[in-house]
Write a protein that binds this DNA or RNA. Structure first.
Lengths: 199, 199
DNA sequence: ACCTGAACACCGTTCAAGT
DNA sequence: ACCTGAACACCGTTCAAGT
């Protein structure tokens, strides 16, 4: 769940109570609307759902992008927490696979999330890139353990693992309507290798 | 190169000479502008580059999407042709890898192309889906040969291969500025498997 | 201190008026 | 038969006026 704060980050004094309520309503509305409709959802839709005027959005967030960044940060919070709570008795390889599975499942659950991550070209959006790296950091110990056990190729970085999970979801997305298990199938293919002869 | 036609598809009579010239100018301009700026480039930019009024665009193409579809069709034409001209003496596995390499190279060369392909959710844009399947068809014999030789896993379809190439490029995109070989590295990782111990 | 809603510059698309 | 450019509905963003 998102941290319920009554002040914007980098603020020393608390918000007025109605402003704090509006801010949270905007975050909730943005979360819902972006999740369902993706990044193309309009600011007006979010304002309406939050019960405020369109201009009020920009009193709390400097731009639509800032609102999207807040959503991404929230989702990455949950992913980091979930990856820390992965069952501890997993073998190194399966643990890394489970980390990637957590990601594709979140992408499947939030249209906006994957749209933002794959639109964010590295140099252009440092705030988004920071979230991607935060996610990579959560996966780093899992990757290290897998590589030290010799079950994972050594030429991969923690960032690579996160990017490949994005790529796997992107590849599978158009299949999901007719094949709900497409992500798992592609994840397994990537893990074991396309060029793997039948068992 | 794009086929230079003086009539729109599904037309029996030829276009007036000035109209034919404008149509081709629009296709050329759209190819250039979309390639450089991606799908966010405006219709006005394309009209200006083509030397016509904004309204003229919609006399030739019913929508901006139709213009994008024309670009995708053109790029798929080239990809299909290139994959038919792959060296015939390649082993089955490397031939399939080369087919995927052709794709990621085109995605790297045309910002709009990959943007369209990964935005096109299957059910929503049948014209784009048709182009993806045309590309899959070009890869089918290569996949079949690789699977029959036992060097490629049997649970992949020709469509899967195209989608995975899109996914690999998407995963590598943000790294390309600092690591130009990121696509090849990810392609190799996916081919050999992430879970492959050091050689 | 915050909210509102009109206003602005932009976008894709339409269409009456021209040639 | 085709082109033009004004007009329309929409978008993200700004800001003067309110409370």
């Amino acid at each position: 769940m998102a941290e319920r704060r009554t002040s914007a980050p980098g603020r020393d004094r608390p918000l007025r109570t109605d402003a704090a309520r509006n801010r949270q309503a905007l975050l909730d509305a943005a979360g819902d609307v972006f999740m369902e409709l993706g990044t193309d959802a309009s600011v007006a839709q979010i304002a309406t759902r939050a019960g405020v005027a369109k201009g009020t959005v920009f009193g709390h967030f400097p731009s639509k992008d800032a609102l999207l960044t807040a959503i991404v940060t929230d989702e990455v919070d949950r992913l980091v927490a979930a990856s820390e709570q992965l069952p501890g008795d997993l073998e190194p390889g399966p643990a890394l696979l489970a980390f990637m599975k957590l990601q594709v499942d979140r992408y499947a659950g939030n249209r906006a999330l994957i749209e933002i991550l794959r639109t964010a070209r590295a140099a252009e959006r440092p705030e988004i890139q920071a979230q991607v790296e935060r996610l990579a950091e959560a996966g780093r110990p899992l990757l290290q353990r897998a590589q030290e056990s010799g079950t994972t190729r050594p030429d991969l970085s923690a960032l690579d693992v996160v990017l490949l999970a994005c790529g796997v979801y992107s590849a599978a997305e158009s299949l999901l309507d007719h094949e709900p298990g497409a992500c798992e199938r592609f994840l397994r293919a990537v893990f074991e290798g396309i060029g793997t002869p039948p068992a």
